[in-house]
Design a protein around this nucleic acid. Structure first.
Lengths: 336, 336
DNA sequence: ATAATGAACTTAATCGATTAAGTACCGTTT
DNA sequence: AAACGGTACTTAATCGATTAAGTTCATTAT
């Protein structure tokens, strides 16, 4: 490995001068600096991020915590899109990404400890369960954090606009003449609560009565459970004319259940999803859904985290709401 | 931050003794060791991975390089599954994951430089283009590496068994009576070449003649291009009875093209995919496809890389082939 | 001529941990 | 009683880089 010492010997100057020259300090003669830089390049010198981090107390490393009790948090398209954009933006800003998890090898650590152990400058947190004490500990620690889709007091968060998204979907369906709307929702989280509340509120505002049996629980990203919920809805004496699914993937479970019952989409049953992942627009019929701005969410998360890291004095916590977009698709039939 | 020095002061011993006690060195009296460990816990001591890495020359950090010219490498389900399992296994072995990319912030680096800069103990490489000089430089460097689906001389690689997979699919389709098989393949890579060769070889072995116009190029994970290829196949005077798609997602593009032509699957056209991502088994009809052992591939990649890192003396390069599994699905009709 | 100024360095401490080599002290052997 | 051996420590160097403080020397001001 080529170190600063090698360069200093080759150039006949002290290590301090090399360091300063390489970092553009003002008290190095331009000619010397040039000579040093040339030598560094010639020797194939690379700074050692580890040594630098130790001395400077800054690792230029951002932790990413994607916790999902069902495992495989990354493999859901919505999350992998966010991860991809956090990564891209962080790298643009000069930061690398490290995953934060519980328990590393034999050491048992919680998330906070893991982040400290790796001296992350900050952490982006996405979780299905923000009540988890381990998540709370990290999110309320002295480490700069940004949470996704959940707010902690005096901390920055990036929020997908679930209220507006649900409102847009309900209104879209309403405008297409539907009055009997059923909602299959995911596990109760703060996001789910917002979606349910917005669903009910907009329905009320539009004068739609939603019978309790039209609201059914299921599990996010689990087509099977949504299929079961769909079956229950179809068994009702008065069926809904449109079913809201917890997410785009879950819709697939509903789809096969509908087909099993000889119902075609959207002729016999209208449906809408949520998320607007690329898959939803590749399906035929194209799914009517609400696209969450995953790319924007990831980008803003990285940006505001780096801002917080680099300007802790002028930094103020903020809630950034990222709007999505209604994708009309072809799964809602015009009736009435 | 609580350091080893804090503990040494609190216990009235030297830092060396603390370090040894915490690492279970033999020359510390059991009573002292216990006292030190108790104090460390009481003070909330956490080792500093950065300092440790600097001194020991081992970072317990594994780089992951997923390069995909189309961007969004992670968001393809097959890759995100591999990433997830590499991560899980690496963590089990005490290693963290860092993404390796080109260019970090203002610094322009290639992959090799990035990996050195972060002092990764090793790197897992997945790439769509193993001819990229930057990939070659990293993969043939002194850094331990494991490549996925491509072999470099004297290096370890994990290979999905594309030859066997394609063979299994062709035979499955053949057994269902199909004799006119078309193959839409992805961009020409070593993987694609293996699949095409295996497709042709098995067809030949079974006495099936494949007219050249039945082999059509498309782009991996791009339903649109597969849709166009499908259209071309449907325009032929003699249509195939079964179409092979480059991957499961691409099949969706073909599906909508078939529907547009009033053809239903599998009644009017049989199809098979490749990859066996969870999505494929949630669709109805369930896609007939070949599941690549993404989980096993990721796990083996992490294991063999760590083995290489920890036992460089007894280590030997190897090609590990991971077998997949035929998922019969319902998109191949029995004919004849 | 002497002091003051400033440019261009060097010296040395430091970040937190590891570890080879050294030391103090106690008990045992002959 | 001297020598030896082992246990349980401590000392000090080291990893690679940064940086406050000090030094040297030429130039300018008085």
């Amino acid at each position: 490995m080529v170190t600063i010492t090698d360069i200093s010997k080759a150039c006949g100057v002290s290590r301090a001068t090399v360091s300063k020259a390489l970092n553009g300090a003002p008290d190095v003669a331009p000619k010397t600096a040039e000579r040093i830089r040339a030598k560094a390049k010639a020797l194939g010198y690379l700074p050692n991020a580890t040594a630098r981090a130790l001395k400077m107390g800054r690792s230029y490393n951002i932790g990413v915590l994607f916790s999902d009790p069902t495992g495989g948090g990354i493999s859901h398209e919505y999350f992998s899109q966010i991860l991809e954009s956090v990564k891209a933006e962080a790298e643009r800003l000069g930061y690398d990404i490290t995953f934060i998890s519980k328990d590393l090898g034999a050491m048992s650590m919680d998330y906070y400890e893991h982040a400290k152990y790796r001296s992350c400058d900050g952490v982006v947190i996405a979780s299905a369960d923000f009540a988890d004490p381990a998540i709370v500990r990290l999110a309320t620690s002295e480490i700069p954090t940004v949470t996704l889709d959940y707010s902690f007091d005096s901390r920055t968060s990036i929020l997908s606009d679930n209220v507006r998204g649900m409102d847009a979907l309900v209104r879209f369906v309403y405008e297409n003449g539907h009055r009997r709307l059923a909602f299959i929702h995911g596990e109760i989280t703060s996001v789910t609560q917002k979606r349910i509340a917005s669903f009910k509120k907009t329905c009320a505002a539009l004068g739609i009565t939603v019978p309790p049996e039209y609201i059914r629980p299921a599990i996010y990203h689990d087509p099977r459970s949504s299929g079961l919920a769909t079956r229950a809805l179809l068994a009702l004496p008065e069926r809904p004319t449109c079913i809201f699914y917890p997410d785009d993937l879950s819709f697939l479970g509903g789809m096969s259940e509908l087909e099993k019952n000889g119902l075609s989409i959207p002729k016999d049953m209208s449906v809408v999803g949520y998320d607007g992942i690329p898959l939803s627009q590749v399906l035929r019929p194209r799914l009517s859904t609400y696209r969450q701005g995953a790319e924007t969410i990831g980008r803003e998360a990285a940006r505001s985290l780096v801002d917080q890291i680099e300007h802790p004095d002028t930094w103020l916590p903020q809630q950034i709401t990222v709007e999505g977009e209604l994708l009309p698709g072809d799964t809602v039939r015009k009736i009435g």
